[in-house]
Amino acid sequence: MKAHLLLFASLVAGWLPSFGANAQEHTRHPMPMPMPHSQHQPEPAKKTASPEPAAPEEATPDHSAMDHAAMGHPMPEPAPEKAIDHAAMGHSMPPAADQPITPIPMVTDADRAAALPPPNDHPVHDNSIQSFVLLNRLEAFDADAGTGLEWQGQAWFGTDINKLWLRSEGERVDGETAAADLELLYGRSVSRWWDVVAGIRHDFKPGPSQDFVALGVMGLAPYKFEVDATAYIGSSGRTSARLEAEYETLLTNRLVLQPLLELNLHGQDDERRRIGSGLSRAEAGVRLRYEVTRQFAPYVGLVREWTFGRTADFRREDDEAVNDTRIVVGARIWF
């Protein structure tokens, strides 16, 4: 009996360790509980073994901060950068900002010679003879003294520097010539816009004919005023002067408005010609013309005339109007 008990105790002692290991294994991994069909819970994530902590890295020495010269280690020289030949690689480089896209060739002697005209092939323009004729006013009018015709024109022949001028103006009233004169002048250009003129003037009317020596200037004043100022010296010490100024305003390319002012002065009374000394007569007018062509332009205008001093007295004695207003219709022609 005693022997049977010892054998049973040894068997139990050998079976208990394996039973404890199996129990531990079941405790560590419990069996999942069954879930009801109405609730679906996600399957728990599988646990992964946590990685072991990495060993600390050794500090890398900063070679750039080391003084290699003090340590006796010479620093190697940096290798020179190799220039990249973009042309050999087929890459076109854009030109610099201060360089033209197309290279400018050097100017040669042949280029300089080609830029100059052949000698004696093109004559200088101021040596060629030119001409110009202008009827600035050719108009009919209706005044207190009656109907009439008035003209004012000029022409020149010559070069740009030297010209021969012809000028004339006058009027006819009721078929009779009331005033008329003709001037023959030599003109020379003294600046880009101005000519000096000198010559003679012959008066046909009023009164007996008379001659004068003329000296004056004509040209384009600042602000594009066309100015003609001439002084005259006649026999017996008679002197006179005439000043004309006109301005052209382009309303359109063909419609032109032209104001005009004319002053006549005399040095002494001339009873035979019914002219007094000082400012004897003034005329102001405005004309509106339409240039059918540049050479031909009909116009209409309004002109006012005043007489002063002794000239006005002569007109009163002759029962003539001292001041007069007239409507004019005419044409401006040049060729």
Rank of each mutant, 00 (worst) to 15 (best):
N22Q: 09
Y247V: 03
T249G: 14
K46L: 14
P105V: 07
A54G: 14
H37K: 15
Y186V: 08
L288G: 00
R172F: 13
P118S: 05
Q130P: 00
P42I: 15
L260Y: 02
A284E: 04
P42S: 15
Y290P: 00
F204M: 11
R304V: 12
M93Y: 13
Y186G: 12
T239Q: 07
A214L: 15
P78F: 04
L251F: 15
R316I: 05
P34I: 14
I101W: 01
S18E: 06
A241E: 03
R112K: 12
D270F: 03
E139T: 02
D160H: 06
R281S: 02
G14L: 08
A49Q: 14
R254S: 11
S64T: 10
K82E: 08
R167I: 13
M218I: 06
A21E: 03
V227I: 05
R310A: 13
L302I: 12
L243M: 05
V133C: 03
P123E: 15
A241Y: 05
A155D: 09
A198C: 09
Y186Q: 05
L7R: 04
L260P: 00
G276I: 07
H86M: 09
M35V: 05
N120P: 15
P123F: 13
R287A: 02
G199I: 06
L5S: 04
D121E: 13
E150T: 14
P103W: 10
G199A: 10
N253C: 05
E246Y: 10
E226W: 15
V300F: 01
N323T: 01
V329T: 10
S240A: 10
F225Q: 07
L261Y: 08
L5N: 07
A96P: 08
N323A: 00
P17Q: 02
T60D: 05
A229N: 02
P222M: 06
A45I: 14
L149R: 13
D211Q: 12
S236T: 11
S168M: 11
A113M: 04
P259L: 05
H125F: 07
G219K: 13
L184F: 09
I161G: 05
G175Y: 11
E52S: 13
E43D: 06
R289T: 00
N136R: 12
T311F: 00
P34W: 04
D181E: 11
F314D: 10
F8W: 03
T239V: 08
M31H: 10
R167T: 13
D269M: 02
A198V: 14
G153Q: 03
N253A: 05
G267I: 01
S235T: 14
E262P: 00
K82H: 07
A96C: 06
I327Y: 11
R238D: 06
F314Y: 10
A312M: 02
D62K: 12
P95G: 10
K224D: 14
E291T: 01
P36I: 06
Q39S: 15
W151N: 10
A55T: 12
A114D: 09
G20V: 00
I104A: 06
T147M: 07
P36H: 09
E25H: 01
F19N: 04
